[in-house]
Design a protein around this nucleic acid. Sequence first.
RNA 1: UAAGUAAGCGGGGUGAUUGCUGCGCACAUAGUUUGGCUUACAAGUCUCACAUUAUAUGUGAUUAAGCAAAUUAUAUGCGUGGAGGAAAGUCCGGGCACCACAGGGCAGAGUACCUUGUAAAGCAAGGGAGUCGCGAGACUAUAGACAGUGCAACAGAAAAUAUACAGCCGAUGGUAUGGUGCAUUAAUUAUGUACCAAAAUCAGGCGAUGGUGAAAUAGUGAGGUAAGAGCUCACUAUCUCAAUUAGCAAUAGUUGGGAUUGGUCAACCUUACUCGGUGCAAGACUAAACAGAAGGGAUGAAGUUGCCCGCUUCGUUUGACCUUCAGGUAAGUCGCUUAGAGGAAUAAUCACUGUCCCCGAUUUAUCGGGGGUACAGAACUCGGCUUAUAAGCUUACUUAAGCC
RNA 2: GGGGCUGUGGUGCAGUUGGGAGCACAUUUGACUGGCAGUCAAAAGGUCACGGGUUCGAAUCCCGUCAGCUCCA
Length: 119
Amino acid sequence: MKESEAGNFLHSQCFARIERITKRREFERVFKIGVRKKIGTLTLIYSPSDTRRIGIILDRHIKGAVVRNKLKRRLRDIYRKNKSCFKGECIIIAYKGTEVMDYNVLRDAVLKLLTKQGV
RNA sequence: UAAGUAAGCGGGGUGAUUGCUGCGCACAUAGUUUGGCUUACAAGUCUCACAUUAUAUGUGAUUAAGCAAAUUAUAUGCGUGGAGGAAAGUCCGGGCACCACAGGGCAGAGUACCUUGUAAAGCAAGGGAGUCGCGAGACUAUAGACAGUGCAACAGAAAAUAUACAGCCGAUGGUAUGGUGCAUUAAUUAUGUACCAAAAUCAGGCGAUGGUGAAAUAGUGAGGUAAGAGCUCACUAUCUCAAUUAGCAAUAGUUGGGAUUGGUCAACCUUACUCGGUGCAAGACUAAACAGAAGGGAUGAAGUUGCCCGCUUCGUUUGACCUUCAGGUAAGUCGCUUAGAGGAAUAAUCACUGUCCCCGAUUUAUCGGGGGUACAGAACUCGGCUUAUAAGCUUACUUAAGCC
RNA sequence: GGGGCUGUGGUGCAGUUGGGAGCACAUUUGACUGGCAGUCAAAAGGUCACGGGUUCGAAUCCCGUCAGCUCCA
């Protein structure tokens, strides 16, 4: 298992289901023990862990299924392309105003947030 | 050509890199199950299977390792499929599921011209009526106001069983005034009575007139009268009944009779018709935990003889076990889909290109630059409705102007 | 997935058998004061969420949209 995961990490940009935080309990655990950092409309919550996982939360005031899904896809894509920057369990919260950003601007913002967190 | 009406089409394309997801196949790893096979260990009861066989007997069941099969999960590879015209709003109706198989009454809700279509509908098509528009056409919650109750600000005489007021009339009856005649009286006075006169008044008659208002008891003309009035007549308008013609019908036309004592039912309401409720988070199945019942076994006490077995009675499952029954939470499966059930995929980035708009240049058809390319994302499913929608396109028709 | 409620000056709210668009605070101006606070007097500020319809007349009645809030699960 460890070897295959390491192999995925090296040459794969895939984003399987096990790399997502889906359950409500897991979210609450990360909220409790995690460290928060905020830049602009983005917030990152980080809690160290052996497995690398990510959760995405969108503000309630971002309306419309099309807009919400597109933002989620973009954040997921940023995670895929820059897996080496992520560690532990992270939750990204996007507040209103994020949906207007371009892809490149959004990527730079996320990476800046990660360096600030020191991940 | 311009303005407009109606019905539709349409929802960009190709490639590269990196990915998500359902199914199928192949392979690998891990787990689970199997009374399966082999070896070793253990071996008391029940039960089951197989063999000889009517009972009965023998073997197997436990644990460990290996093998085999089934199944689950994960990874990899290949193949194949993966969002709309509205998927939206949830405004109607159906399928499907459960609830007392669904029936009656009340309440409540909905619909309201006719015919046809449909599984059904408040939907669609055609027709009728009304309103709007020069017109093509559009819109309409299109039954009932002699069943009842209510409402109408301001203005106005009056806003609802019409009559109080202003006003008109003085035919009919009365009062008072004047004149004349007659009777009584001494009298030109006074009283009574009769007649006449014009103006007034009371009773009375009238509903024509009233600077209103959204709406005032049908409009015009003639007759009629004291004055007037649908009081009568003619024509017109509306409603209604009957006959007849056309039509399946709503309805329309004609003839005749009657009425014109309003408006509002998207005020309460009346009439006719329709509707049982809840909704896939419905519900079905498996089922740890948990509480319960029955049986077996175990154990304690008492009795049967001191002990053991057995039996009887009582107690115990908070001292432990097994089996069965029905209930059932967490969880899972089905419901559920040749898109799909996971916080929910169907894509992200880039390049070229199609199309439209603007600017500039000129060879008037091209080039260069810039910008735009919508609304919006399935969650059980289907038929409608409503709403959102970039550019472009098609068809039919109307009006106006010009030309032939 | 399925229900319910609300929308009125800048803010918070009244307003129902359909007929005047209002209240409080805030804002502006003036007076009282040497000045502020405060009080008094006055003024301005409204497509009654939007679009249709019924009606003589609609914030109100009916239909359809939009936005916000909320409940069940």
